[in-house]
């Protein structure tokens, strides 16, 4: 039997795997972003405990391998007597991991903004948090879009690591397929192409977002 003769039988499983990959990526990117905002604000605009906690969290996430983090959650949480599905364990891991990296990328955006912007905001009577919200953040976010979209591209690829904690995402399904049918080369080539397509879509979407939010003065002028 040829590769293309056996493929249809496995397509539903592969499609399900693809769906899990997409779901992991999107949820981790979105919730990771929501978490990254308070993280970066705590890091840059608070003192004492909130800042310390944010820094500790980011250091832990960036300082340990993703696999270790996933194992820690997957095997650690049940040790506390709480049952957890592989997918949910992976999701928690990716959300937390991505939050730390997105916070770092946002921080880069904040650093690109001159301190005069904050002074000007204060000078018309805005409070600190108002100034951060309406003056600093919108600018920092624009500067961070390229790095943030890079993070989503990494996420698409990193989700494949979830197969080691039994999440039946795209790579796992490809492995099942390969061990059943021995079409190793073909299936890994195929899912390689699928990952490539996913990443192409992400970078198109990020270009569109950048275009939609484009404001004169925020482009990298020397490239245009």
């Amino acid at each position: 039997m040829s590769f293309f003769a056996v493929l249809p039988k496995y397509l539903p499983d592969l499609a399900h795997g693809l769906w899990l990959t997409i779901a992991l990526t999107l949820i981790a990117a979105a919730l990771g972003f929501l978490l990254s905002v308070p993280l970066v604000l705590a890091l840059l605009y608070t003192k004492g405990i909130p800042r310390m906690l944010a820094r500790l969290f980011i250091t832990l996430v960036r300082g340990t391998p993703l696999l270790v983090q996933l194992f820690f959650i997957y095997y650690g949480i049940p040790a506390l007597g709480i049952r957890i599905q592989p997918f949910n364990a992976a999701l928690i891991g990716f959300i937390l991991n991505s939050a730390a990296y997105q916070a770092e990328y946002l921080k880069g955006g904040f650093m690109a903004i001159s301190s005069e912007q904050m002074e000007a905001a204060y000078s018309i009577g805005l409070s600190k948090w108002q100034a951060v919200r309406v003056v600093i953040f919108p600018q920092a976010f624009r500067f961070a879009i390229p790095a943030l979209s890079n993070e989503i591209i990494y996420l698409v690829k990193y989700t494949s690591v979830a197969y080691v904690i039994q999440v039946p995402e795209l790579l796992s399904q490809a492995k099942f397929f390969a061990s059943d049918t021995f079409f190793h080369l073909q299936i890994y080539f195929l899912i390689g192409v699928v990952y490539l397509l996913l990443i192409w879509v992400v970078s198109k979407l990020s270009d569109m977002l950048e275009h939609k939010l484009h404001i004169p003065g925020f482009d990298i002028a020397h490239l245009r």
Binding site: S114, E116, Q117, E119, A120, A121, Y122, S123, I124, G125, L126, S127, V135, P138, Q139, R142, I215, G217, F218
Partner: peptide
């Protein structure tokens, strides 16, 4: 200070307009 600063306008050397 929020009340006070409204009563004191400031103009900056490098304009400091909100660029976005």
């Amino acid at each position: 200070l929020i009340k006070i600063r409204q009563k004191i306008g400031m103009v900056f050397q490098h304009f400091a307009l909100f660029k976005h």
